[in-house]
Design a protein around this nucleic acid. Structure first.
Lengths: 138, 138, 138, 138
DNA sequence: GTGGTCTAGACCACC
DNA sequence: GTGGTCTAGACCACG
């Protein structure tokens, strides 16, 4: 059993975000959180298909994309594994900044579309963070 | 000339967010910010088409959607105007909270997909806010 | 009509090389040869599907892979285009050398599997080159 | 100990070429180079399995294929041996030429897919040959 | 009419 | 039983 399976996590079919993309994001997220380590075996395509109730091809598409990105390695007959190759050097500060900037602008427009204001979002995040810290202390 | 035109604002063609949606979001955002007031006239479809370099059908689709939401009113031969009807009561705290929650979860997974961590995003937002305050003081 | 269509070129269904990969390679090849220039429009997915007698999804898979590599850009409703973004800097001499080395070792074993010897292959290539030069002179 | 074992040679797990095929090719190659002579005993399946770190079934599959081609003869309880039967007459010039031709076209498209040009490949091969000759002189 | 997504299902290659 | 490829076909989103 892998970290991915262990998580209670579901695909949102009506979020507008492609299912295969949700899978990609979920794995990236698990990776960033250290729930998946280089060399770890991922659930088989068929397993995720059963687990998430999505078509095996959809899982395969997600895995394939991650493989092209060099994040995982698939071995026929064996399974798929988190790549042990040295991951590409993390983007430098400038690139990072640019991404954050673009990302932020993007979520703001999306927020507006949901009827949420920038301030609301910021307050929510700060509030959330405070609670989290509080929670940890306890 | 309207508030929308005055803004230097561009469509991002490769952001993955549909162009028509960006237009919708932009207008919602202007409304929330008070840059557009009830009764204000919006740019004509043709005008936005020229201004943003997007297909007139795309603008039309955005306006149609806003009209369906009751945010716009189109008067044949005159143009489109921000509705003067009492806008629907703002969602109550609970609904708002739910939206924020769902919205937040969503952008976090998206961030992970871009190689950004939750902390990075939070820090960026806070930093940005501080700078903004500073900027206003000056 | 694009450079790709203009070429008489066919998919080899029984070569053991995946069809979508042949499409990818063909386009890379056309690009390297200058038959495709940045900004050029590629045949639509449906067009290649008709032209090559392969499933549209297979073409889409090839295009998708090229898009992930940053070689082309697909615009919904418009078509697919050779990316105008500055292509990633060509691999340095060392990387190139490594690739050639690995590539060469690979084709040698493949040749052996076909009953061809290294010398045969080398001679063939040199002969071919000579003919080509001769042909050009005439 | 056999010629095959003596060679420092490894399976490339991520080359895209099936492992069993690499084994087949390696043996064909050794045969063509005279490192293996008719009647020579090949390593046992178990031995190659240990040596190369591959599944015994994979070795078995390679041997089976070679046996079908008449290149090997397996004698139960004794091992596998290079066939002493007169090998099938080498393909005539025409057949050979055709194979080379098809082979060459194939590797060229593959090269393009790796970002290598025809000239690069040719130069590499010629350079390599020159070095090799030089090396032999010394 | 363009590309995108997803499903269903078949068959293959590999281990 | 693993992943890989391909097909067929449906439906959607976009312009």
């Amino acid at each position: 059993m892998t970290a991915i399976e262990g998580e209670q996590w579901q695909v949102e079919f009506h979020s507008g975000i492609p299912v295969y993309r949700q899978v990609v994001n979920r794995i990236c997220s698990a990776l960033a959180a250290g729930q998946l380590q280089p060399g770890d075996r991922l659930p088989t395509i068929r397993r995720l298909h059963e687990l998430l109730g999505i078509n095996p091809n959809t899982v395969a598409k997600a895995y394939r994309e991650l493989e092209l990105k060099g994040i995982l390695v698939s071995e026929r007959g064996h399974g798929s594994f988190v790549s042990t190759d040295p991951s590409p050097p993390p983007p430098d500060a400038q690139e990072r900044r640019a991404r954050l900037d673009s990302f932020y602008r993007r979520i703001l427009t999306e927020a507006a579309g949901c009827g949420l204001t920038e301030n609301e979002v910021i307050q929510f995040i700060q509030q959330r963070k405070k609670n989290e810290c509080h929670g940890r202390k306890v």
